[in-house]
Amino acid sequence: MLLKKLYSFTAAVLVGLTLVAPASAAEKVTLLNVSYDPTRELYQAFNKSFADYWYKKTGTAVEVNQSHGGSGKQGRAVIDGLQADVVTLALAYDIDAIAQKTNLLPKNWQTRLSNNSTPYTSTIVFLVRKGNPKGIKDWNDLIKPGVVVITPNPKTSGGARWNYLAAWGYALKHGNNDEAKAKEFLSALFKNVPVLDTGARGSTTTFVERKIGDVLLAWENEAYLVVNQLGKGEYEIVTPSLSILAEPPVALVDRNVDRHGTRQVAQAYLEYLYTEEGQEIAAQNYYRPRLESVAKKHEAQFAKLEFITIDGDFGGWQKAQQKHFADKGTFDEIYQVNQ
């Protein structure tokens, strides 16, 4: 009797192991989109729209699976073998890392789709509590004593790196391009940061659920999500005079799509992001669309402000990463001094 049980256990193990084998070709195609934290709502809507579009066009059903997490962490998982067909991460540096450490996609991946492979953009804004009790209007209000600022850790979070660089750009502009002064500015800012979460979602939860802080440095789309859906009437968005044009890029993971036989549908998926329908969904989820016609339609939704860019003002992500966020970069300098 017990032997019989042993056999059934073994059978169960074998059943478990057969899950390893890729499912046999069904009528349905599946894609895996490995993305960063705040795009959950965007891709939920977009995947549905794309599935309809693809079914009408080819008669094949397509199911897009999603994986979300901090951008750097997600890039690392793809390097370690997470079978992403497409990656849609917070910044180009994290996809560069995949291209450098593996041969999953070519190093010139960013030139393969238009607009530097970024179908939508965003920026960094401030989220404050109702009535803006601390009177926060611009970056220089963040370094005032007694203002509590919430931002995630630039070492692990893509959004946090955009936050940091936007503040740096503001400090340079208002400090005669003096880097020492910019460092002082950032140092004063991070003195006001009591907790560094690992990702943008963690920081939002700290600010909204745990009610810590006077101002949250947030992705514009994340800030809108909070204002419109989480706490209606409890928060306000403050747009600073200057911020950074955040360009979250997308890329096809060549080796994985060839292995899965999904190149055609994965390519169409990324291209659909640039169509009117795709852009409309991006805009509805508070990402700034690239397409002129859609941008015009949603003009009122997005405040006008002065932008600095990663390529124009920082010489690209490789340089920015090296200078600010690598070991002994400016972030380490100011943060260690503060400790």
Binding site: G16, V20, P22, A77, D80, G81, L82, Q83
Partner: peptide
């Protein structure tokens, strides 16, 4: 994929991590 057995498994299309096994 970068691990000790990563290449061997990859060549045979066997997915262990980031999958049920």
């Amino acid at each position: 994929a970068q691990g000790l057995l990563g290449e061997w498994l990859g060549d045979r299309n066997i997915q262990i991590v980031f999958a049920p096994p």
